[in-house]
Design a binder for these strands. Sequence first.
RNA 1: UCCGGCAUAGCUCAGUCGGUAGAGCGAUCGGCUGUUAACCGAUUUGUCACAGGUUCAAGUCCUGUUGCCGGAGCCA
Length: 489
Amino acid sequence: MNFDCPLISDCPILPSVFSSPRFQMSWMTINAALNGAEVGARITVKGWVRSRRDSKAGLSFIALSDGTCFATLQIVAAATLPEYDAVVRRLSTGASIEVDGELIESQGKGQSVELRADAVRLVGGVEDPDKYPVAGKRHTHEYLREVAHLRPRTNTYGAITRVRHTLSQAVHRFFHERGFYWIHTPIITGSDCEGAGEMFRVSTLDLANPPRTASGAVDFSKDFFGKETMLTVSGQLNVESFACALSRVYTFGPTFRAENSNTSRHLSEFWMIEPEIAFADLRDDAALAGDFLRSLVKAALDERADDLAFFDQFVEKGLIKRLEALATSTFEAMTYTEAVKILEASGQAFEFPVAWGKELQSEHERYLTEKHVGAPLVVMDYPKEIKAFYMRLNDDERTVAAMDVLVPGVGEIIGGSQREERLEVLDRRLTALGLNHADYGWYRDLRRYGTVPHAGFGLGFERMIMYATGMGNIRDVIPFPRAPKQCWF
RNA sequence: UCCGGCAUAGCUCAGUCGGUAGAGCGAUCGGCUGUUAACCGAUUUGUCACAGGUUCAAGUCCUGUUGCCGGAGCCA
């Protein structure tokens, strides 16, 4: 690598305190070549062949992608090149090449600039073009999932990957700019009170021959941590302790659920964002959720227009309009009690009956957000019986300060609540639910020492990506999906 | 986990009443063209998911298993 090449200024670098000295390479990204490089520049690009078309005029056209942007760069390779027959004419989809050449205005339609090749070098050929798993044709998402190591080379997955990155960056930027601190909550937990479903065990015990207690049960005191440990299902409980010290904090990391969920909206391993704010109530929480979703959508619109244009055309017609509408909207909000009234008055024939005190079913949520509102919707103040122990009891003693954000097409994208900060009320809830106070020692401590009202929520990151791209299956918006019976790569 | 559907060429699928395997796309070769989802012609391709059963004969019918898809539940 040559880090001092004077010709190259690598792809648009955002203004930053880190912008000098620049990290430069001796070749140019296709993103840089297409967006900002001077016509007439002599450059080198490297990437993977999407397609090759030969012309009897003595030319071959190569569509080259390096994944740095949606578009491919058209390489024009003349038959007069010494390597024309040995290299160029043998290129097939998927091969990797390096090309030196001059960036020129395109003589053809479909692109403004193209690279007139001075030299084409094969980096890696394709063993058997007939067997290349992502040949230049349409493939189903289901099939591409089986070749997840090669699907990043397709238009769709390249676009998803770039949007995913942009949204990740936007998450951190949003919170950083508002004074939130990122807390790295643990992945391994010894807390059996997280309570959000089945957990994966973490153990170094010999499964075939585990140590036993006198009563015959597996003796976890002999395990690595001296107790039973699991993969976390949420960083919330841990992050609450940091909120009650640094005021505004969030987590953004992987989360694990061992539920046997076989749906297009669930993964066994997914990423979740959980902000937590001290001195905040549920209204503050909902306001933050709205700002947050709008900011993420705006980031995607601003920074990934090329990828969104693709999704708009091939995945969900009208996607961009929908996102633009969201970016400037305020979310409608209603209480659970109002939602039940609306559903009861809707005249819809639901499979599951609607009644105050019962969970809202998917079909109910879908009606509310897709038909009744036609936009994102916040439902608040659910009956305490159907919500978790840590949610703050409202003055009516029947409901808790919980909220769900529902969006058309995806359903529940955010779940949050104001946390119960009053020790005696929390203890009453624990008792009512038959939970052992001793198991919640440090969590109760937060209520014993300088307790404050606080609230937060969890956003399923992959569900956000689905919403931002129009993709219909959550397994297609994460690089290597983990789901029941699926851990292939 | 429950309900429903599906599993046939590299991919997407057809395959009638049970009678011994087809198309499109891709790929390869050739033709044409500053081409671009190119176009025209030719060629290429099979453990019919797996295990058993019925039958003279099973891709086709029956049983079981596995996997995938859609919906539901759990949730984010």
